[in-house]
Nucleic acid binder design. Structure first.
Lengths: 198, 198
DNA sequence: CTATTATTCGACCGTTCGTTCGAATAATCG
DNA sequence: CGATTATTCGAACGAACGGTCGAATAATAG
């Protein structure tokens, strides 16, 4: 078993199976919630035996981390262009939140997981997880936009961290509260943010 | 054991011990988070044997429900006067959120539990819990204020449910995100809400 | 083909945790 | 004082669950 082509195919199949497992994990999470997502059921939904999951991932935590990393990476890729658009801070800021909302609506289960899991993981040791780098990067960009916006008098003259908390909370409320049915439109987000930012 | 005075004292002592247990539960929750709060540790922190907890409560869930009921009741009592103050919808609405923030700051562990637990309990069967009546009552009052405010042109002409989600999210972000240290002031809340509501 | 390696999987293991048991102690009553 | 009832508690139970084992099967190599 030394053939290069074979090895390539194998690793592709391995990646494909990992993806199937992650899809199953996401489906179970959506159905049962964070704590209700058991390895046995993820295996069942994914169509693998339980032990097979451990052939592809070393632990349940690794499955969740892989999911979070994939989510933050996808989100970040979507945002990268918007972040360096060269527009005014306020317009860039609003564009980013709109883009996030748009991305969220392309895969709600994934992004609900993405924005819910970190709170649940707060009380665990999980600090060095790879996905956190991307989360921090996003917060940093938003924070800088707010600081610029304040300096340029586009935003209210308030503590930047306060504005970030307000915006983050407002966004989270609009996008994630309530049933799936009444999902938010980009226009509504823009209107709300416009009001709040003056 | 039929003496009336004795029976009264007994039931008072029973209530006092229940309160001690609830305090312990809250302390453990604050320290370890929702899922990290184990019965063994609640017993240890409360100063009772584990089995004694089950002499005063029938289950862990009942302990949490009692805590939630107490929290929502306290919050509701604080708000009752404000809700019927007879002021304009906008002023009443802002007063209520300010009052909530003020109340939250009198007992952060309790109210963090209050506002965090419902989300974690979403995926459990727990629907008929007594405390939910008070939660719904609060939401209903806020919703009515928003509808009045819209009708009287004090609020933006938007879907009321959207405004509630935005306000709720913003409030939650301001009050509960970040470390305990940078707790929000009532003035900051008023300023934010004033901006958003126009 | 045989030998070797990769993959799959249900049964099983060890731990954790909510809950209960049964005995021991304290309080109350007549 | 017994006798009865209320209270306390650690030990033990049993279910749930993440993770592992070892055997079975499939894929590949020579």
């Amino acid at each position: 078993m030394e053939n290069t082509a074979t090895t390539d195919r194998k690793s592709a199949e391995r990646a494909a199976r990992q993806k199937l497992i992650l899809q199953g994990a996401l489906a179970v999470f959506k159905e049962k919630g964070l704590e209700g997502a058991k390895i046995d059921e993820i295996a069942r939904v994914s169509g693998f035996g339980k032990a097979t999951l451990y052939y592809y991932f070393t632990s349940k935590e690794e499955i969740f981390n892989a999911l979070l990393l994939h989510g933050w990476l996808s989100l970040w890729r979507e945002l990268e262009e918007t972040a360096v658009g060269g527009d005014s801070p306020k317009r860039t800021f609003i564009s980013m939140l709109k883009k996030i909302a748009e991305t969220v609506n392309t895969d709600r289960p994934l992004y609900e997981f993405l924005f819910q899991a970190p709170k649940a993981f707060t009380h665990e040791e999980n600090q060095k997880a790879e996905w956190k780098a991307y989360q921090n990067r996003l917060y940093k960009v938003l924070m800088e936009l707010i600081e610029q916006g304040i300096a340029e008098r586009e935003f209210p003259q308030m503590e930047p961290r306060l504005i970030l908390k307000a915006m983050g909370g407002l966004f989270h409320g609009l996008v994630f509260w309530g049933s799936d049915r009444d999902s938010i439109t980009e226009n509504e987000i823009e209107e709300m943010l416009g009001n709040l930012l003056g």
